[in-house]
Amino acid sequence: MVAGALAIAALIAPASFNVQKGEPYECGIPTRGTSWMQFKVGYYLYAILFLMFDVEAVFLFPWAVIVKSLGVVGLINVLFFAFILILGLAYAWKKGALEWK
């Protein structure tokens, strides 16, 4: 569908060439430097935290399906597992990884 629409657009859309048109949009000011540059580390911290919790969520899903048959023992085990992860979150929180500086 996407390819079809692109093909239609390429066929029927007008095309004109202009050197200025290809410039990256920056409110009319000529572009300075490249935009592939170093970026704020805060974004990566969130990504790493996400990785940790997402893996946790993935492990919790199988437990969630059979929580009735596992009963209290399963719950305690999962709590133990989650406790370690929450400790990680608490550490990151304490260290200020969740602050945006």
Binding site: T34, S35, W36, K40, Y46, F50, D54
Partner: peptide
């Protein structure tokens, strides 16, 4: 990332942090 534009880049980084967080 691929459009080589600073606005796009900032938008992409923001959306990376945001979508990934709320995914959780």
């Amino acid at each position: 990332w691929s459009s080589n534009n600073k606005f796009s880049m900032i938008g992409a980084m923001r959306s990376g942090a945001q979508m990934v967080s709320y995914e959780l």
